[in-house]
């Protein structure tokens, strides 16, 4: 008897959609995936409804790849639903794993985000000051929108997650490895990541020198020799504090790593790890004052999953 095909699902919550494209970036390998598995839910590509998922028996999806952070009530609802319906839930991409750029909204709260988005931005024309409401009564009845939360959460802060594959988007070889592991049922211990344990520096071809940081420079301020470690040239590179897997794509094309793969496996706070390392090689106190945007620089992808998680809002 032919082996029954696996059932897999993809979902996007608060994300940019890049992770959806990354699934297709595995090119012809996608054929292996569809040969071995049926896609039972994929809102970006296939016409399934939430009710279709609700109708599925619990644990009937073999693996669900969930990208995006938890920003709204809807995100949370579907995360919980898919958790219930799936045997394996994979946090797919930086948003689901660490909150990513979406998580930087944790520097504000709902009120200030709305203020900015629906009133302050130069492109906004909203004289009535309309903002999204969870509940609106109109003459036709009650209109309900999912609640917009104060704080962005990661998937694992919301539901129990089996595996992680971070990155913005996840590195292609790691996506292939993830699919293969699931299709062949060759799975690592629960809670594992499909990215390597090492850091970006391990994959970076640039030559490391003496690491004496005497001045922080922007990438346009250096005369890059395309060979020397960017940190050795004074540019803040998140490589040392970022999990490997991408083959150091950015340093390879002469841009510093910004940390999208998230922290190493033993690190709880990527930004703090980077700050400790940078402070340790700073040769003078002025270097410290040259750090102008610590959260945007060191917590760009991991604020929602850091020790602080969000800004303390003074009411």
């Amino acid at each position: 008897m032919e082996k029954e095909k696996l059932k897999i699902a993809f979902y996007w919550a608060a994300s940019c959609g890049g992770c959806e494209i990354a699934v297709l970036d595995i090119n012809e390998k996608i054929l292996d995936v569809v040969a071995a598995a049926d896609i039972v839910f994929w809102p970006v590509a296939l016409d399934f409804k939430y009710k279709d998922v609700e109708a599925m028996p619990d644990k009937s999806i073999d693996a669900c790849f969930f990208n995006g952070a938890i920003r709204t009530e809807e995100n949370e609802h579907i995360a919980k639903l898919l958790r219930r319906k799936s045997k394996i839930l994979v946090a797919f991409g930086s948003c689901a794993c660490d909150g990513c750029v979406v998580g930087l909204a944790n520097l504000w709260d709902r009120e200030t985000v709305f203020e900015r988005a629906y009133s302050e931005t130069p492109s906004t024309n909203n004289p009535e000051g309309t903002t999204p409401k969870t509940l609106l009564e109109v003459k036709e009845g009650k209109l309900k929108l999912p609640e917009f939360y104060d704080t962005v959460k990661t998937l694992s802060q919301t539901v129990d997650v089996d595996y992680f594959i971070s990155g913005c988007p996840p590195p292609i070889p790691c996506i292939i490895q993830t699919f293969q592991a699931i299709l062949t049922n060759n799975l690592p211990p629960k809670g594992s990541s499909f990215l390597p344990n090492k850091s970006i520096c391990d994959e970076c071809p640039r030559e490391k020198k003496d690491k004496q940081l005497s001045e922080i420079k922007r990438i346009y301020e250096i005369d890059d020799d395309f060979k020397t470690c960017l940190l050795d040239q004074g540019v803040i590179c998140m490589g040392p504090a970022t999990r490997a897997g991408c083959g150091a794509q950015c340093p390879n094309v002469n841009m510093p790593c910004t940390g999208c793969n998230g922290p190493g496996p033993r690190v709880t706070d990527q930004g703090a790890a980077a700050l400790s390392a940078i402070a340790s090689i700073a040769t003078n106190p002025e270097v410290i004052n040259q750090v102008v945007d610590p959260i945007g620089t060191f917590y760009k992808y991991s604020l929602a999953n850091s020790i602080l998680r969000r800004k303390v809002m003074k009411k």
Binding site: L275, P285, I295, K311, V312
Partner: peptide, 18 residues
């Protein structure tokens, strides 16, 4: 070295509203 870590953390805390 830790003096610099403390200084950086202060900058960070400020950004966090602490």
């Amino acid at each position: 070295k830790t003096e610099k870590k403390v200084e950086l953390t202060k900058i960070l805390l400020k950004e966090y509203g602490v």
